[in-house]
Computed example of a mutant assay.
Amino acid sequence: MKNVGSSPADATAGWAAAEPAAQQGQAAPNAGDGPTRQLVARMVLEQGPVTAVAVAEHLGISATAVRRHLDALVADGEAWVRESTRRGRRGRGRPAKLFLLTESGRARFGHAYDDLAVSALRFLAEQSGEQAVRSFAKRRMAALVEHHREALAAGETVAERARVLADALTREGYAASTRNVGSGEQLCQHHCPVAHVAADFPQLCEAETEAFAEVLGIHVQRLATIANGDAACTTHVPNVWSEGRVEGRSEADHDAVEQGTAEREPKQQETAPIPHDGGEPV
């Protein structure tokens, strides 16, 4: 990443106009941001904690315009504010506001996390074998779902658990949803934070599928993945519990059947998951 340091405003603006975002090692500005907000965010990144007045002086634009962009960054969760600590004699008025970027704000300028993760997993595979990569993937997913296990266990039907799982995944950054497809639910993840890494290490997707089956209590089938170039990660969740346990049957009834103390019931044949129709999941 280039460091514009304390260069004057015209040099900063010229640098931003001359180089594409990719060459600057940063993500493209969000839609509607405009180049000025990106310059303001960069100033906060490099000089923060910094006041709006200092940013305005450095960029050569009005403090009012800078405050508008800073307020927008704060509202979007990309920056936060703290009051400056006055030194020496205390003057009149409130302490100046100092602006800093949050982790979300820093993401504007890109990270090498994907490259680092791929390199680390390749090293792990070389040093300890593919099984070590699978173990890592399983532990990662176990930690992710553990936070939501209690809510998932409260679901009385497969559909309810699938919806709870979708909500949990959304909170983890996967933008997930479900839809009924007759023979069950389709769990769709419209975003994958580790897609680029999973393209090289499918063990991440495999561990995710296994974790879904474990927390839902039923065999699931992965139909599509973003890492494989599909529009969404799609998992079919059939509406029949594992081991022939159908929806509506309580845990106590299921345990009683396993112990042979309940009346024998014909074991319902599991319905095979429907094939993916190839269309984009909703």
Results as ranks from 00 to 15, higher is better:
Ala159Gln: 13
Ala112Met: 06
Ser6Ala: 13
Pro49His: 11
Arg108Gly: 02
Leu152Glu: 06
Glu210Ile: 01
Lys2Arg: 09
Gly93Gln: 06
Thr36Cys: 01
Gln26Gly: 06
Ala18Gln: 08
Glu210Trp: 01
Gly88Glu: 08
Gly173His: 08
Ala117Cys: 04
Pro95Tyr: 05
Thr261Arg: 15
Val53Lys: 06
Asp76Met: 05
Gly129His: 12
Tyr113Glu: 14
Trp15Gln: 06
Gly48Tyr: 08
Arg67Leu: 09
Asp71Ile: 04
Gln268Asp: 05
Ala54Asp: 15
Ala56Glu: 07
Ala11Phe: 08
Gly184Tyr: 11
His254Tyr: 09
Arg245Cys: 06
Ala125Lys: 13
Leu216Ser: 03
Glu214His: 09
Arg222Val: 08
His148Thr: 11
Phe136Gln: 04
Leu70His: 08
Val164Thr: 15
Ala27Tyr: 00
Asn30Ile: 12
Phe136Thr: 07
Gly248Trp: 11
Gly5Glu: 13
Gly14Pro: 00
Ala75Pro: 01
Ile61Val: 15
Gly88Cys: 12
Ser250Asp: 05
Glu160Pro: 02
Thr178Gln: 09
Gln203Val: 09
Gln259Leu: 15
Leu116Lys: 05
Ala199Leu: 03
Arg87Phe: 10
Gln38Arg: 09
Ala65Ser: 15
Ala175Leu: 13
Val145Thr: 13
Thr271Trp: 00
Ser104Pro: 03
Pro20Asp: 10
Glu185His: 04
His111Ser: 15
Ile61Trp: 02
Asp167Glu: 15
His191Met: 09
Val81Trp: 01
Ala142Asp: 15
His147Thr: 10
Glu210Phe: 01
Glu243Ile: 03
Pro266Arg: 14
Ala195Val: 06
Trp15Met: 05
Glu146His: 12
Val50Ala: 13
Glu83Tyr: 08
Asp200Asn: 12
Asp230Gln: 13
Ser135Val: 08
Leu100Gly: 05
Ala117Tyr: 03
Ala227Asn: 06
Gln186Pro: 00
Ala21Arg: 01
Ala252Arg: 13
Val53Leu: 07
Glu243Ser: 11
Ala132His: 05
Thr170Ile: 07
Ala117Phe: 01
Arg179Ile: 06
Asn228Gly: 12
Ser119Met: 03
Glu208Ser: 12
His58Asp: 03
Thr170Phe: 12
Arg82Asp: 11
Arg161Gly: 13
Ala31Asp: 13
Arg42Tyr: 10
Ala18Cys: 05
Glu280Ile: 12
Arg42Lys: 02
Glu103Thr: 11
Ala132Asn: 03
Ala176Ile: 08
Thr178Tyr: 10
Val74Leu: 05
Asn228Arg: 15
Arg86Ser: 09
Asp114Leu: 03
Pro193Tyr: 10
Gly129Glu: 09
Leu204Ser: 10
His147Asn: 05
Gly129Lys: 10
Ala176Met: 09
Gly129Leu: 07
Lys267Trp: 07
Ala256Tyr: 07
Val158Thr: 12
Cys192Trp: 04
Ala143Arg: 13
His190Asp: 10
Arg86His: 06
Glu258Leu: 11
Pro202His: 04
Arg94Asp: 04
Thr271Leu: 15
Ala142Leu: 01
Pro266Gly: 06
Gln269Ser: 09
Ala153Asn: 08
Arg222Leu: 15
Glu150Asn: 08
Thr225Ala: 15
Leu187Arg: 07
Asn239Ala: 14
His276Lys: 02
His148Lys: 02
Trp80Val: 04
Tyr113Met: 07
His58Val: 01
Gly105Asn: 03
Asp253Leu: 14
Tyr174Val: 09
Ser6Cys: 02
Gly88Asp: 04
Val237Leu: 00
Glu19Met: 09
Ala154Ile: 02
Val215His: 04
